[in-house]
């Protein structure tokens, strides 16, 4: 394996960090994410209006100097709601993906490395999960756990996990076929060591890509779940539920959809840039 330019004393993580910091696109992504996180945290300070306060005389008004992003169907300030909605949506996006990764990746690696009946069992269980409609799981969980954002994140995480199982398994098979891994196994390295040293770092790229993609669907899924009584309940805003509401006013009040929609796009885009930076930084083969 090639050593980086940092000399002998530099560990792999340090090298990754150094490379990441030199990755321009990744830094842009990181800054955008940071801005959104700051907005979410400092929403009470930044928001010009109370995001929950309706105004019956100013419903569905277009953007103006007092309401930068216009007002919604109850006359609430869309800009303030986008700021506060960042809290729910960022949490929903990140936490659900982490749950899916933690559930899916170990199982996928296990399936790929063990083969045989373990592989078959995990594989068929994942098939069964994929075939089971998300809606049923969501309604059952809503009744069982009650309406809370955490429960929605759990439901989204569970339902996204099979994808990571399949992806990790497929990538693991590819890595195991590499000569150096075969050699490591032949030399009698214990499986957990092979998994953590050789397999995991090499299967990260597709997992990172999928994680950043899943984030977009998680943010949108949160809204449909809140509609089923599982996620954030009204009047608290989230980008997804703002988009859902805006569906009814696509022609009459497009600004209601545009601003939360653009926010989702920016966050997803930024996370994808960060993901790309991470994969470049972690990939031992990419010398720069």
């Amino acid at each position: 394996m090639r050593e980086g330019r940092g000399g002998y004393g530099e560990g792999p993580w340090r090298r990754a960090l150094r490379r990441f910091l030199r990755h321009r696109a990744a830094i842009v992504g990181l800054v955008v994410v940071a801005v959104f996180v700051c907005c979410a945290v400092a929403a009470p300070l930044l928001a010009p209006h109370d995001p929950l306060r309706p105004s019956w005389t100013a419903i569905r008004r277009p953007p103006s100097p007092t309401h930068w992003f216009g007002t919604d169907e109850n006359g609430r300030d869309v800009f303030s709601r986008v700021l506060f909605g960042a809290r729910t949506s960022l949490l929903a996006g990140v936490v659900s993906v982490v749950i899916a990764l933690l559930l899916g990746v170990p199982l996928g690696i296990l399936a790929g490395m063990s083969g045989g009946w373990v592989d078959a069992l995990i594989g068929r269980a994942a098939d069964a999960m994929l075939a089971c409609p998300f809606l049923i799981l969501a309604i059952a969980l809503a009744a069982f756990l009650g309406p809370a954002l955490e429960n929605a994140m759990l439901a989204i995480g569970i339902s996204a996990a099979p994808i990571f199982v399949r992806l990790a398994r497929g990538a693991t098979l590819g890595v195991l076929a590499q000569p150096y891994v075969e050699a490591a196994r032949a030399l009698g390295n214990p499986p957990w060591r092979t998994a953590s040293v050789h397999v995991l770092p090499n299967i990260l790229p597709p997992l990172l890509v999928q994680a950043t993609l899943t984030m977009a669907s998680a943010i949108l899924a949160e809204a449909s779940l809140s509609f089923l009584g599982l996620g954030q309940q009204p009047p608290a805003p989230s980008w997804g539920s703002m988009l859902n509401t805006a569906q009814r006013f696509l022609e009459t009040a497009p600004w209601m959809a545009v601003f939360p929609g653009v926010s989702i796009f920016l966050v997803v885009f930024a996370f994808n840039l960060v993901g790309d930076g991470l994969r470049d930084a972690l990939d031992p083969r990419l010398a720069r």
């Binding site: 569906q247 696509l250 929609g261 885009f269 840039l273």
Partner: peptide
Amino acid sequence: KDRAPDWIANGVALAGLSTPNFWLGIM
């Protein structure tokens, strides 16, 4: 990679991904 086609392809793809199907359909 990291040049204009990459940025454009990424931007269009992710915009497509963040647009709810319902929305695109109605449009």
